[in-house]
Simulated assay, not measured.
Amino acid sequence: MYQQLKEKLWSFIVHNNPDLMFNLQDDYRVTEYLETKVSQVMPTAMKLLEQGKEGYAILELCMNEMTAELKPSRYHYIAALVKEEFPEEFVRLREAGLLSYETVNLVDHCKETFDVSGFCEQNFSDKIIKEQITGKILDYFKQAK
């Protein structure tokens, strides 16, 4: 189960948090991060096993616990904002093969705004946060020109 959780967590990160994936790879901390997160959830997994829960249910509950702080995806939030608010820039970046790269850079550029606003699933649709992040994206694109 330990290895399954590591693999599922890494897959989740790759698909939903590429910014974290690149940072972990740059710092050579992928294994350390995955092992720490899985080790933290193993007591829960063992308790659920003792209660007779099915393997798939244990994996799902443990994944929810391990990924709670990674939701919602800042990467997907910014990608959607760029597509919606800056369609010409979106097309230009996509056609140049830079969309993923620049979206990761934008997540880093907007990190302080996300942190200060307490960006989470409960305020994911907040208009003020959207305006603040959109402003930061605009600043980024202006600086890049």
Rank of each mutant, 00 (worst) to 15 (best):
Q40P: 05
L81Y: 05
R94K: 15
V116I: 15
L81T: 03
R92I: 09
V38I: 06
R92G: 01
F90A: 11
E88Y: 11
P18A: 07
D19C: 03
E102R: 09
Q40F: 08
M63R: 04
A96I: 07
K8A: 10
E102G: 07
R29K: 15
E35S: 04
L9T: 03
Y2E: 03
N64H: 08
V91F: 05
H76E: 09
S100C: 06
T67V: 12
A45T: 03
H76T: 06
K6L: 08
A57N: 09
R29C: 14
K6I: 08
E7L: 12
R74S: 04
Q25E: 15
H76R: 09
C110Y: 00
E50Y: 06
A79H: 10
N17S: 14
A79D: 08
E85I: 00
V38Y: 01
V104A: 04
Y56S: 14
T113D: 13
A68S: 13
Y75G: 07
P87M: 07
A57L: 12
E112A: 14
V14A: 01
M63Q: 10
F12Y: 14
P18L: 05
V104Y: 00
L106M: 15
A68E: 11
E84N: 12
E32M: 02
Y77G: 08
N23E: 15
K111M: 11
C62M: 04
C62S: 06
L49F: 10
L70N: 00
F114S: 11
L61N: 08
K71T: 12
H109W: 12
L70W: 02
D19V: 04
E84K: 15
N105Y: 07
C62K: 02
P87D: 05
D26L: 10
Y56N: 09
E112N: 12
E69N: 14
I78R: 04
D115G: 03
E32L: 12
E88A: 08
L5G: 06
